[in-house]
Computed example of a mutant assay.
Amino acid sequence: MDTTEILVTLGGLGLAAYVIWYFFFSTRHITTAVSGSGGIQAVAITVKGGYSPDVIEVEWGQPVQLSFYRAEDNSCSEELLIPDFSIRRELPAFQTTLVELLPQQAGRFEFTCGMGMLRGSLVVK
């Protein structure tokens, strides 16, 4: 191997390590839902290259209202899936979409975009 091949290999390994760290080990934005009138737990989520916050903590047995504001027109983020609650919603660009659900048991429930690239979690306590 010559110097160029070594540098390209090291650069590729560095980029692969960064991708693994970003998707599996980077810090998550955790938010606890705020109970408003009527006991509804509400959280506002911005969709732009990911979900922010991407981890939402709620109490079980109380209704939850998630407000997804899609601040982009990237095709990956145009659909929201929450399979454990049988929810599939279109997220129009630059609009807010309300998703309401009632968690009946504690646990961690994943939500993703239609392609599975963007990920978040609903943690029910």
Rank of each mutant, 00 (worst) to 15 (best):
S26W: 10
T32N: 09
T96K: 14
I45N: 00
M1N: 10
G61S: 02
T27L: 09
V43P: 02
V8T: 10
N74I: 12
Y18Q: 15
L101E: 04
I56H: 00
Q65Y: 08
R89K: 09
L7A: 02
V123K: 14
S75P: 11
E90C: 06
S37M: 14
F85N: 08
G14W: 07
I40C: 06
R88E: 08
R89A: 11
N74H: 15
V19A: 14
I82G: 01
T112F: 01
F23R: 14
G61Y: 03
E5D: 12
V124H: 00
Y22K: 10
C76M: 15
V99W: 04
G14Y: 05
E72C: 07
P92K: 03
R108D: 15
R70Q: 06
F23W: 11
P92S: 05
H29I: 06
C113H: 01
S37W: 14
K125A: 10
R88S: 11
W60A: 14
Q95D: 11
Q65M: 13
E78A: 03
S35T: 07
E59V: 07
R89Q: 10
A42Q: 13
T3S: 06
R70D: 01
G12F: 08
R89F: 09
F23S: 13
A42G: 12
Q105Y: 06
S75Q: 10
L80A: 05
G107L: 05
Q62S: 11
L10C: 10
S37A: 13
D2P: 01
T31P: 07
T4I: 13
G11T: 04
I30M: 09
N74F: 07
A42E: 13
W21T: 12
G61L: 00
D73V: 11
L118I: 08
L7E: 04
G11Q: 06
Q105S: 04
L66I: 05
N74Q: 08
E79G: 08
N74M: 09
Q95F: 13
Y51P: 00
T96S: 11
K48R: 13
G49Q: 03
T46P: 01
G12A: 04
D84V: 06
P63Y: 05
L118H: 00
L80I: 09
T27D: 14
F25R: 15
I20Q: 15
D54F: 08
F111G: 01
A93M: 01
G116D: 02
K125C: 14
E100T: 13
G50F: 03
G49F: 01
G50A: 05
A93R: 00
I30V: 12
E90S: 13
V123A: 07
H29Y: 08
V8H: 09
G107E: 01
W60V: 11
L10E: 07
G36N: 06
D84Q: 10
V19I: 09
L122D: 00
E100W: 13
L91R: 03
E90Y: 11
T32R: 09
I45Q: 03
I20H: 15
V123E: 09
L15M: 10
I6P: 06
A71N: 14
R70W: 01
V99D: 03
P92W: 03
E90D: 09
R119C: 04
P53T: 02
A17H: 09
L118P: 00
E72N: 08
S77P: 04
P53L: 02
G14C: 08
W21I: 09
F94E: 07
N74R: 08
T27A: 10
G61A: 02
S121H: 12
G114K: 02
L98G: 15
A17S: 14
R70K: 05
